[in-house]
Amino acid sequence: MGKLNGKVALVTGATKGIGKAIAELMAAEGATVALNGRDAVAGEMIVKNILGQGQKAVFLKADLSSPEANHNLIASVIENLGGLDILIPNAGVLGLGSVTDVSIETWRRTLDINLNSVFYLLRAAIPHLKADGKSGSVVVTGSIAAHKGFPNHAAYCASKGALEALVKQAAVDYAPEIRINMVNPGPTDTELYKNSAVAFSNPETVLDKVPDTLPMKRIANPGEIAKAVLFLASDDSSWTTGSVLTVDGGASAAG
């Protein structure tokens, strides 16, 4: 028996990296998964692979930078899958640059995708997550950047810090019907992580040195983050809401 049998889950930013790993694990645990992303080719390929395993999934393309797109995405999930039990806002962008260097356009888009889209998704999804007396679960993908400064990551760090505050506030408002939690990954083997190297003064070598700074002496693979998300999405965490689960190989503990 899967941990998510009979559940409908929406995962945004699901065409690569952590989002892809989350979507695949949710499907393996019995959920019918709606994958969202901007890359339709990648999304449809992931769905094909999930269906080939005898599991259930659909792909819904959307750029989540506007309130309308988020509202329409939730409406599409309800129309296509008949309901919504689990929401995983995972889509994110880097938006690199210091306060004086980052463009206003980049600042706005970073907050639109990393922070505002989560607000829009919650606004649209909450009535469905608690419909008919059922109990819904939201797990937001954050970052240790909510608490740690990184060179030339002004918009990214700001968006993740604000996102954590939103998660805690919403958890208070919508308990006990809906549990809302957050996973803060540390260095993880994703395209976004690799792209972040250009923000540092030594982009050619900075990522090679990261494992030595971590107590675990390696970076994570996306599947390890997905397992933390599964815990918070499932009934295994039935008395957990407003919490932030840090999964960072000891990066935060080491300072």
Rank of each mutant, 00 (worst) to 15 (best):
G2L: 12
G2Q: 09
A9L: 05
A9K: 02
L10G: 01
G13N: 03
T15H: 05
G17M: 10
I18P: 03
K20I: 15
I22K: 04
A23K: 04
E24Q: 13
M26Q: 08
E29K: 07
G30P: 00
A31F: 07
T32V: 13
A34Y: 05
L35M: 13
G43F: 09
E44C: 07
E44F: 06
N49W: 00
L60R: 01
K61C: 15
N72P: 02
L73Q: 04
A75Y: 03
V77Y: 01
V77L: 09
G83R: 06
G83P: 08
L87P: 00
L87V: 08
A91S: 12
G97A: 12
S103G: 15
T106W: 01
L111G: 04
L111R: 02
I113Q: 01
L121R: 08
A124K: 02
G136Y: 12
G136L: 14
V139T: 06
T141R: 03
S143W: 03
S143P: 05
H147I: 08
K148P: 03
G149V: 15
H153T: 06
A154T: 15
A154K: 06
Y156R: 00
A162G: 14
E164V: 00
A171Y: 06
E177K: 10
N181W: 05
P185R: 01
G186N: 02
G186D: 00
D189N: 10
T190Y: 02
V198K: 11
S201K: 13
V206H: 01
V210M: 04
P211Q: 02
T213V: 13
R218D: 05
P222F: 10
A226W: 02
A228N: 08
D235H: 11
W239F: 15
S243G: 12
T246K: 02
D248R: 01
G249Y: 02
G250E: 11
G255F: 03
